[in-house]
Simulated scan of single mutants.
Amino acid sequence: MSKEDKIVFCTGGGCTAKLGAGVLSRILEKLPRGEKDPDLLVGYDSRDDAAVYRITDDIALVQTVDFFPPMVDDPYTFGQIAATNALSDVYAMGGEVKTALNLVCFPEDMDLNVLGEILRGGAEKVAEAGGSLAGGHSIADSGVKYGLSVTGLVDPHRMYTNDTGMPGDKLVLTKALGVGLLCTANRVSEAAPEEMEAAIRSMTTLNKTAAELSRKYHVHAATDVTGFSFLGHLHEMMGGKLSCIIYADAVPVLPGAEKAADAFLYTAAGQRNRNHTGPFVRFENVSFAMEEVLFDPQTSGGLLLAVDPADAAALEQELRTAGLPASIVGEILPKQEIEITVIDK
């Protein structure tokens, strides 16, 4: 790959390229809905991670799509991250990956070997997920973008949705936060190599193991933490009818992320997240750097699970035994004046 063909960092690479949650909500509210299909169990109106359509009493399709510009300069690694991120929505619904279609935007004058490496990285992650890469679509564009349209299967009686948690449930997070901050720091050469390597390991780790282990326990709700940040996706989980308390000292954070926040190396997407979700959050004794971590847009983040309190500790331990930095980070409460309270002991 020549110097001219090297993928450069994008100002909005990865899930930082998402439109803000507030903008999307205003647009989606105005779309015509048509007559409700009783077999569409989950649609866009619930702000969930994927659509779910019932085929039989015991089988439902899970459909999702995700793609974005690169946030790392190695094409193969970018392909792995983008695919891992897209596959995650199926796991967030409690499903199993079956097929995937490539989505590619690529400049006609760029070395096709770059595209080949992106697609190789993505194909390997689809295979690791147990799915089949079944085709795709490409268009000529001024910049590089890549992702997947993914189809999975789930038992509709055992699927996860994002807003069905219950008071008393423990909140379990399966990956550390901070990849958005670290990618920004890396773009200006302020992230140590080992810090960026840890971020890449996190972004290329499938949520498959976490999802499979979670099915052994009583999980009432789930989501994956991506561009709208930990607090943004937590806000969606509360669904306007619940509240929660988060223990900041229990939240796993990637090395270097808080340092990047202290150096003001955060993203515009993180500030959009703060503007949208901040009014629902109260911080108590939490550092500004940790606030930024909690608002940081994640690319290929972990699962956030609302787990029966009797099962939470066992699930946390099993996830950790599997090598995941999982932690019980809070608890769901009955609805209170403040939706999300974050405290640091």
Rank of each mutant, 00 (worst) to 15 (best):
V8G: 00
T11V: 11
T11M: 15
G13R: 06
G13Y: 01
L19I: 14
I27E: 03
L28Y: 12
L31A: 13
D39N: 13
D45L: 08
S46C: 09
R54D: 05
I55F: 01
D57K: 15
D57T: 08
D57H: 07
D58V: 15
V62R: 02
D73S: 15
Y76N: 07
G79M: 01
Q80F: 02
Q80M: 05
Q80V: 00
A83W: 07
L87D: 11
E96N: 15
N102R: 06
V114K: 13
G121E: 03
A127K: 08
L133A: 00
G136K: 12
G136T: 06
V144H: 02
Y146H: 01
G147R: 04
T151L: 10
T151S: 13
T151E: 09
H157F: 03
M159F: 15
M159T: 08
M159N: 15
T161G: 07
K170G: 04
T174S: 13
L177F: 03
G178C: 01
C183I: 11
V188D: 06
E194I: 10
E194F: 05
A198N: 08
A198Y: 11
S202Q: 13
K208G: 13
T209V: 13
A210H: 13
A211N: 04
E212M: 11
V219N: 01
A221N: 08
D224W: 08
D224L: 00
T226V: 15
G227T: 03
F228R: 04
S229V: 09
L231R: 07
G232P: 07
H233R: 05
L234I: 09
E236G: 09
G239I: 13
G240Y: 02
G240M: 05
K241G: 11
S243Q: 01
I246R: 05
P255E: 04
G256M: 05
A257K: 06
K259C: 11
L265H: 12
T267I: 07
A268E: 15
A269W: 09
G270T: 10
R272F: 10
R274F: 11
G278D: 06
E284F: 03
V286W: 00
S287N: 04
F288G: 14
V293M: 12
L294K: 07
F295I: 04
G302M: 06
L304W: 01
A306W: 00
D308L: 02
P309G: 05
A314D: 09
L315G: 12
L315W: 05
A322K: 04
L333E: 06
E337S: 15
I338C: 08
